[in-house]
């Protein structure tokens, strides 16, 4: 596997951008650092979501399920294990969960998959609520000395990992298989691709990543309860941001996450009671007017400029 000049340029640019982002806590105040954490969190979630859902067109609404489980791994695990063990443990549990969901659903059509993944978060939430009722506890305190800065840096590290992984997958057999499956699953099968295995393998990536993200963010909440950790809003927001940016490129979701986070801040302050409605409207607008997201707009503009230059 050899790297071209363009690869090196993109790699160095990405490294520089990450480095610059890592300096944020020294430059801005607490409020903006909070927004920075939100952006980093959604960048991680949306990018890993798009790794699977982009090529396969399977819309997963399971993000909250994995995220919530990750948060609970930290919440429950802190009393027994060192914090640094909890993150990979959450990833492992998320990956196994994703594999099981994949085994149960990915042979079915896309519609089943959407509904099943949405139900999954609710299902896990109910189990944990039931467990709490049986044991007589309510929420869970997550008390650590981890600061907002630490969380931010951890998320940046995770983002770097997700991008590196996405880049590798994009150049791999698995990535090529997924693109073929997304185009025509019948052709994929008859070309010799084990479509079920490819889909399950790749679905484990957002599963693991969302669980790790939940584990990283748990200390931020201090007190976690099922309704908070498994909120379906999280799953929908991840889908909307990824689609807004565009799933055709690795950097696409990030381009959606940044403006959407600011817009969402403004909306939540001005219309705190209409957020769900506005989220729905945003979804419709994006799907209708920007089917390929900002990535599509940018690439169309580039192509137009390119063809003018050629003339």
């Amino acid at each position: 596997m050899s790297l071209t000049a363009t690869d090196w340029r993109n790699l160095s640019l990405s490294a520089l951008a990450l480095l610059a982002a890592a300096c944020l806590p020294w430059v801005v105040g607490n409020y903006h650092l909070t927004i920075g954490v939100t952006i980093a969190m959604y960048a991680v979630l949306a990018t890993s979501w798009a790794l699977f859902s982009g090529p396969t067109h399977y819309i997963s609404l399971a993000t909250a399920a994995f995220f919530g489980v990750g948060a609970y791994v930290t919440g429950i695990g802190l009393q027994h294990l060192p914090y640094w063990v909890l993150l990979p443990l959450a990833g492992l549990i998320g990956a196994v969960m994703a594999a099981l969901v994949g085994l149960a659903t990915l042979r079915l059509s896309g519609v089943y998959f959407v509904i099943f993944t949405l139900g999954l978060a609710e299902f896990v939430r109910q189990i944990i609520t039931w467990g709490q009722n049986v044991s007589g506890t309510k929420g869970l305190y997550v008390l650590t000395s981890i600061t907002e800065r630490d969380i931010y840096w951890q998320l940046l590290g995770l983002a770097a990992l997700v991008w590196a992984l996405g880049w590798l997958i994009g150049r791999s057999r698995l990535g090529f298989a997924l693109r073929i499956i997304g185009d025509d699953e019948t052709v994929a099968k008859h070309s010799g691709i084990n479509t079920a295995r490819a889909k399950i393998l790749l679905f484990m990536v957002p599963g693991a990543v969302a669980a790790i993200t939940g584990a990283v963010l748990a200390p931020r909440y201090v007190y976690i309860e099922p309704a908070l950790a498994f909120t379906p809003m999280l799953s929908f927001q991840v889908v909307i941001m990824a689609l807004l940016g565009g799933t055709g490129r690795l950097w696409g979701p990030l381009v959606g996450v940044i403006p959407f986070t600011f817009l969402w801040e403004a909306i939540s302050i001005s219309f705190p009671n209409q957020t769900t409605l506005l989220l729905g409207v945003a979804f419709l607008l994006i799907v209708y007017f920007l089917p390929r997201g900002f990535v599509g707009l940018i690439e169309d503009a580039r192509r137009r400029m390119g063809s003018e230059g050629a003339r």
């Binding site: 693109r179 073929i180 997304g182 185009d183 025509d184 019948t186 052709v187 008859h190």
Partner: peptide, 12 residues
């Protein structure tokens, strides 16, 4: 195999 109704990968 090929298919009676041609099946190509449209995005590629």
């Amino acid at each position: 195999r090929t298919f009676q109704l041609v099946r190509l990968l449209p995005s590629m």
